[in-house]
């Protein structure tokens, strides 16, 4: 066994021991609840969650659909669509605002007295999770998608903005230097050099944020901010886990589809040959398996 692997294993062992000590302190030495937990969990999955209640996805709940289009009026479909719409609007709004603020926070573009206030603004919006933003926004805006969208937008500005300015700070120096010597203004450098140069990562982050907001949109539904999470909470509170399982499956499928979409979008700006046309299989396999698969195809 090589020395590097030994060190890695030793490091992991050390961290596991550390975790054990911290967790033991957390539960104050009472590990009783862990006994039999796996059995209880498997019982819960096999008895309460499975099989899913597909009626949530196939039966029309809302008016306006014919019988053969019932799925499009089901609770799962309509709820998911609402969550996707909320996430889409919040992501685009948040991205648009963040991309205007983040060049002001990048140290290679602006002096420190500009960067620090811009970073503080983004840190403020990021310091509260979107669910807390939603709880703060429900009283003034009422229940429904609006506080949900606003909550996700605020969080997106802070979260995505931090990714963006860090990415901008990491762009290669030579285009920046050439642009400065040429006499381009700071804003021209930001929008014509730095943002296009980091476009691959910015797009990747945008798609990640959309996926994140779709997942978080379901959580926001739990506090009454609309979307599929509202139905999920409703059935879980009633103990109807078969019904809730259908919503969970729909969420999983949608997140996977967004991942596929993300790969497709990024392939437009990636280095040539780095990313092949994505397939369903590629979203499921780990990267190593993916590349060995391509090599076998002789690509």
């Amino acid at each position: 066994m090589n020395r590097g692997l030994n060190r890695l294993l030793l490091g992991i062992l050390f961290l596991l021991i550390l975790c054990y000590i911290v967790f033991d302190d957390l539960v104050q030495g009472d590990w009783g609840k862990i006994d039999g937990a796996w059995g209880r969990f498997s019982d819960f999955v096999s008895e309460d969650l499975l099989p899913p209640e597909w009626g949530m996805l196939t039966d029309a709940y809302y008016d306006g659909c014919t019988e053969d289009q019932a799925m499009f009026c089901s609770k799962a479909f309509v709820g998911m669509l609402e969550t996707i719409k909320m996430a889409f609007v919040a992501t685009i709004l948040g991205f648009s605002i963040a991309i205007l603020i983040s060049p002001l926070a990048a140290r290679n573009l602006v002096p420190i007295w500009v960067a620090v206030p811009a970073r503080i603004i983004m840190a403020m919006t990021r310091s509260l999770p979107s669910i807390v933003w939603a709880l703060l926004l429900i009283p003034p805006f009422g229940l429904g998608p609006l506080p949900g969208v606003l909550a996700m937008t605020f969080y997106t500005i802070g979260f995505l903005g931090k990714f963006q300015y860090e990415e901008m700070e990491g762009v290669r120096n030579d285009p920046l230097e050439a642009a400065r010597v040429m006499g381009l203004s700071r804003s021209e450098i930001a929008f014509n050099v730095v943002i296009p140069e980091s476009s691959n990562s910015l797009l990747s982050q945008l798609m990640f944020m959309f996926e994140y907001n779709v997942r978080h949109g379901t959580v926001l539904g739990l506090v009454g901010a609309g979307g599929i999470g509202f139905h999920l909470m409703f059935y879980m509170e009633l103990g109807l886990y078969h019904h809730a399982m259908t919503f969970l499956i729909v969420i999983f499928l949608v997140v996977m589809m967004i991942d596929l979409l993300s790969m497709g979008v990024r392939s437009f700006v990636n280095e040539e040959g780095d990313v092949k046309r994505p397939s369903w299989l590629m979203t499921l396999l780990p990267p190593n398996a993916m590349f060995s698969n391509q090599n076998q195809d002789g690509k």
Binding site: R172, D174, P175, L176, E177, A178, A179, N192, V193, P196, E197, S199, N200, V269
Partner: peptide, 9 residues
Amino acid sequence: PQRLGLVRH
């Protein structure tokens, strides 16, 4: 510059 300073994307 030596590395040309082009916006590659």
